[in-house]
Amino acid sequence: MILHPTVIANLLAAYIASGMVLYAVFYGVQILKSWDIQNGHELQLVLERKTYLISTLLSYVFGLQLLSLFLYIFTADNLTPLFVGAMCAAGTLNVGSFGYPTLVLKIVNFIVAGLWLVLNVADNQGYDYPLIKKKYLLLAFVAPFIIMETVLESAYFMSMEADVITSCCGSLFSSERVTGIGSEMASLPALTMMWIFYSVMVCTLICGIVFYFKGIGGYLYAALSLLMFVISLISIVSFISLYIYELPTHHCPFCIIMEEYHYLGYLLYILLFGAVVSGLGVGALSPFRQVESLQAMLGGFIGKLALASVILYAVFTALVTYKIVFSNLIM
C-alpha cells in the first residue's frame, strides 16, 4: 500500500460513505417492512423522524460521492510518477485490476445516488410520502454497489506497490511487466464521432424542449439523455480531448481535469453528470404523475428537471464547440 495522504483521504471518504449508507439501509429496511402512514403507532412516528436523518445522510453521501469521484482521478494522476509506464491517471488506474472497475462503479453510484435524491425531493412534496417504499427499495438496491465500490477501492489502493529502487535494479526494467496503456486510449475515429455527437445532441435537446413545452416523450428524453451521457464520454476520449490538448494523439479523458488545462474537465464532467442525473430523473418520476398527492406538484418538478438537463447539455455542447472552434488544432 502507498501511504500517501491523498490515498488516505480517498479511503476515509469511501469508508465514511459506506458507513453512512449502511446506517441508512438499516432504517430503510425497517421502513420497507413496517411503514404504514395510516397507523399512529410509536414505531411509525420514529420511522417518520428517521426519514429526515436518512435523507440528510444520503445528501451528504451524494456530495461525498461527487467529490470523491474527482479526488480519485486526481489521486491516480498524482501517483503516476510511482509506476513504470504510467503517464497520467489512465496509466495509474491500470495498475492492478481494480482501478477501472472502481471508477466505473463510482460513476454509476453517483448517478444512482443522484436519482435517489430526485425521488426524495419529489416524495417530500406529497403530504403522505407516496414514494417512500420505492425510495427505500432503490436505496437497498444502491447500497451493495456503494459497499462494493469501497471494497474495490480498498483493494486497488492496498495492492499498489510503487516501483522504487530495489537492491537489484536490473530486475525491474528488464522484467516483462505489462505497462499501463498510458494516455493513448483506444478511441473511435474523431470525425465520425463528431457527427454522431452533434446529431444525437441535437435530437436530445429537441426532445427535451418538446417535453418541456408539450409534456410528451418523457421516457424518450430520459433514454436519450443516458445515451447522450455515454456518447459524450466516448466523445471526450475520441475528439474533444484532442482539441483541448491541441495534440492529435492525446486521447486521455483524465488529463483535462488538471491544472494545465485550467481545470476545464471539472466543469465539463459536472455539466455532464448534472445533465444525466436530471435527465434520468424525468424518466424516473414520470410514472408517478398520476399519484394523487403529487398530481399538483410533480408536473412542474419534472418540467424543471427536463429544463435543467437541457440547459446543462446545451452549455456542455457550447463549451465543447467553443474549445473546438478556438483550438489551435485543425483536423
Binding site: P5, V7, I8, P81, L82, A162, V164, I165
Partner: peptide, 13 residues
C-alpha cells in the same frame, strides 16, 4: 525520482 516520491509520501502519510 520514484523512490524520493515514495519516501516523502510515506513520511507524510
Amino acid at each position: 525520482l520514484r523512490t524520493y516520491d515514495s519516501i516523502f509520501n510515506w513520511r507524510g502519510g
